[in-house]
């Protein structure tokens, strides 16, 4: 096929205009979050003492971390879907949420006696945390990967990992309203593990499906 003929074919191909990738990401974030929230509320639900919990700093801080993570991952995903984007120092945005969490861990270690550290870190919900966060991530992750396929990320693995972080952040935000372990020590250990797992899945899926 000659290149001129190919051009003729491309010009004639106005069948389906693909969705704009930025709009696709926003739709994936909104749609993924709503579906995950419906699943969460109908199957798991809030913790029983949520009215009292919202008055504690530790409980509220979990949302600061998870929402910051989701927002920074989505913001970066909006960048990397352009082929010429070089996120460079913007990638440090991903470090904001873990950085905040680290400060909270230090504060926790300062104010709590050392004998309570391990019980707080182990908590009572570790297994639930490791199950629920990845499960709630499935729909948002799938939605983000679909949206990124409308884009042209230069680094498919990175784009997939950001999809995983964003999905993990959304899932962790929901799960945090169920979990009664509010210590930053618990969050640092188990939330990170659960979100890390989702990120790894996103990375591998990205390498496989986001190359173009």
């Amino acid at each position: 096929m000659k290149t001129d003929d190919l051009i003729t074919a491309l010009v004639a191909d106005r069948a389906a205009k693909p969705p704009k990738p930025k709009a696709a990401i926003m739709a994936a974030a909104a749609g993924g979050a709503v579906i995950a929230a419906v699943l969460f509320l109908s199957i798991i639900g809030f913790r029983n003492d949520i009215a009292a919990a919202v008055e504690t700093y530790r409980f509220l801080f979990k949302f600061v971390v998870t929402l910051t993570l989701a927002a920074s991952a989505i913001a970066l995903a909006l960048q990397v879907l352009r082929p010429e984007a070089s996120p460079g120092r913007w990638l440090w945005g991903i470090a904001i949420a873990p950085g905040l969490l680290l400060l909270a861990v230090v504060a926790e270690l300062v104010v709590m006696p050392s004998a309570t550290w391990m019980p707080r870190l182990i908590g009572t919900n570790a297994r639930v945390c490791l199950t629920v966060i990845p499960l709630l991530s499935i729909v948002p992750l799938t939605a983000f990967l679909w949206a990124l396929r409308q884009g042209a990320p230069a680094r498919p693995g990175l784009a997939g990992a950001l999809a995983g972080l964003g999905a993990g952040g959304i899932a962790a935000t929901l799960y945090a309203s169920h979990c009664t372990d509010d210590s930053p020590l618990f969050v640092m250990t188990w939330y990170s593990l659960a979100i890390g797992l989702v990120t790894l899945v996103g990375y591998l899926a990205g390498k496989r499906w986001l190359a173009w």
Binding site: T3, P18, P83
Partner: peptide, 13 residues
């Protein structure tokens, strides 16, 4: 040709 195809299919980016 590969580049033209990608430009076309990814023009929204």
């Amino acid at each position: 040709q590969d580049t033209l195809l990608a430009i076309h299919l990814k023009r929204q980016t």
